[in-house]
Amino acid sequence: MDNQLYPRQQSLYFHNHLANIIEYPDCYVQVEWQPAPMYSSSLREVYEQLLQLLQESKLSKVLSDHQMMPAIMPPDRDWLVTDWAPRAVQHSSYRYCAIINSHDVYNRLGTTELVQRIRGSVALHVSHFQDHESAARWLLSS
C-alpha cells in the first residue's frame, strides 16, 4: 500500500483467551477481542496489560475491535469508568479510542453506555466505526 494506512510492523504484546493486544510502533495499540467467555478477571487482565503498554510505549491511541467481543457485565463497566479509564488517562498518554462496533446488540448497547459515562469523567476522544480501515484512518489522522 502506497498510502501506508496500516503500519508495516506490528508486535504482539499480550494474549489471553479473551483478547490480543498488538502494538503498532509510533501509531497505536490494537485490542482484538475474541468470541470467548467473558470473565471479569480476564477482562481486567487485558485492560491492565493495555495500560502497561500505553505507559511503556507513550502511545496515545487505541483501536479496540469489538466485533466478536461478548458483552461486558455491569460491574466491569463500572470498574472501567471509575477505576481504569481515569488511571489510563492520568498515568499515560491515552487520549484517542476507535471502537469497531460489535456484532452483538447487547455489547453495542453496553459499550454505548460505557462510552457516555467515560466521556463524562475523563478527557478521552472516542469514535465508533463499522470497519477496521475507517477506525485506523481516524486514529492516524487524529
Rank of each mutant, 00 (worst) to 15 (best):
V89Q: 06
I72D: 05
L54M: 10
Q55E: 06
A88H: 09
H91R: 12
S57T: 08
S93R: 15
L51C: 09
V89N: 03
Y96Q: 11
R108T: 06
M69Y: 05
D78F: 08
S64A: 14
L53A: 02
P86M: 07
P74C: 03
L53R: 08
L53H: 01
D83W: 07
A71C: 06
V62F: 02
L59M: 08
R77F: 01
P70I: 07
D83L: 11
Q52C: 12
V89G: 04
A85N: 09
Q67D: 01
Q52S: 14
W84K: 11
H66I: 04
L63D: 00
D83S: 14
D76Y: 11
K61Q: 10
L80S: 10
V81P: 07
S60G: 09
S92Y: 06
R77A: 05
P75T: 03
H103E: 13
D83P: 00
S64D: 09
Y106D: 00
A71E: 12
L59S: 04
S102Y: 00
R95T: 11
I100V: 12
N107M: 04
L54C: 10
H91V: 08
R108Q: 11
H91W: 13
R108V: 09
C97K: 13
E56R: 11
L53C: 05
H91G: 08
N107D: 05
H91M: 13
Y94H: 12
K61L: 03
M68K: 15
I100C: 00
R87P: 12
L51K: 14
